[in-house]
């Protein structure tokens, strides 16, 4: 009984943390599913969102969550430009080219963060980020609950957007069959640019909540990229529900790994899970 009570906190925290991971992975999954390219710079672009929240908080004195009103359009624009001017052209050269260009972008971003914000670990510390609440034997930081709620809202909005709007339908059409979509009069290059831009707006949200939950450094992008990749592979590319389930699986793996094996091993557990997922279900549990 005592063990169960002890386990309750990491389990609940893992599930809630899964929400954050789902939001981080959502943009990657969208780009992966629609444009069929793996954006190795995704983790670093999420960290760009975190740094934006950091600047908004320390320089402008705005609450990081409120700052998303500016942050999301900003990253949306950056994402649109990256896809339009770099990746759309690379796409025509080869699959390797998109990978290598994304890798180059990742290096540029990491170095830029180091120049501007130094390699020191930063975090978004607000009045509510250190709050926590208890329900029976469970003690949960408030931010974790926020992560989870935001994940649900973001996923519902994205789902409705893809279902109901013209652009959403165009994105789904381009994801299913690029050539046919093109023949139907959809400007696929533009759709891809918008897809990447939306993914970046999601990365802005993910970045701010990541900053509220964890501290981050210029090179944190890599570890979150790996987890996001694991989630996308587990959940199937472009699958919103799958991403959510995958996020929870990885959140649980991390908190339970930390509980049983110690804090230093918790990331290792998540990484090894990525490898296992790749080996066992290379196309994901919800994959076609």
């Amino acid at each position: 009984m005592n063990v169960l009570a002890d386990l309750a906190t990491p389990v609940v925290m893992g599930i809630l943390l899964g929400g954050l991971y789902a939001v981080i992975a959502l943009g990657l999954s969208l780009v992966f599913g629609v444009v069929k390219e793996i954006n190795i710079a995704h983790g670093d672009l999420v960290i760009l969102g975190s740094y934006f929240g950091y600047v908004a908080m320390t320089v402008l004195g705005i609450d990081p969550i409120l700052s998303l009103i500016i942050g999301m359009p900003l990253l949306f624009g950056i994402g649109f430009a990256i896809q339009k001017y770099l990746l759309n052209r690379a796409f025509r050269i080869s699959m390797d080219a998109t990978l290598i260009i994304a890798f180059g972008i990742s290096l540029i971003l990491q170095n830029t963060y180091q120049l501007i914000w130094t390699p020191m670990a930063r975090g978004l510390t607000t009045s509510y980020s250190l709050e926590s609440f208890s329900a029976g034997p469970i003690h949960i930081p408030l931010v974790y609950l926020l992560d989870f709620l935001v994940a649900i809202v973001v996923m519902l909005v994205l789902r409705e957007f893809l279902k109901r709007t013209y652009l959403g339908k165009a994105i789904r059409a381009a994801a299913q069959d690029r050539k046919t979509a093109h023949l139907m009069g959809i400007n696929t290059d533009r759709v891809y640019a918008f897809t990447f831009a939306i993914a970046m707006a999601l990365a802005a949200i993910a970045g701010v909540f990541l900053g509220l939950t964890f501290s981050f450094t210029p090179i944190s992008g890599m570890s979150f990229l790996i987890i996001a990749l694991g989630i996308v592979v587990l959940g199937g590319m472009g699958n919103i529900l799958g991403t959510f389930v995958g996020g929870i699986a990885f959140g649980l793996a991390q908190t339970l790994g930390g509980y049983f094996l110690g804090v230093t091993a918790q990331m290792l557990v998540a990484y090894i899970m990525v490898l296992v997922v790749l080996a066992v279900t290379p196309r994901g549990i919800f994959g076609r």
Binding site: L86, R89, A90, I93, A97, I100, I101, F103, G104, I105, S106, L107, I108, Q110, N111, T112, L115
Partner: peptide
């Protein structure tokens, strides 16, 4: 800024 330069070279060459 060496990583920035190397990243720019990678992107530039590929494009």
């Amino acid at each position: 800024i060496s990583l920035i330069i190397q990243g720019v070279i990678l992107v530039g060459i590929m494009l």
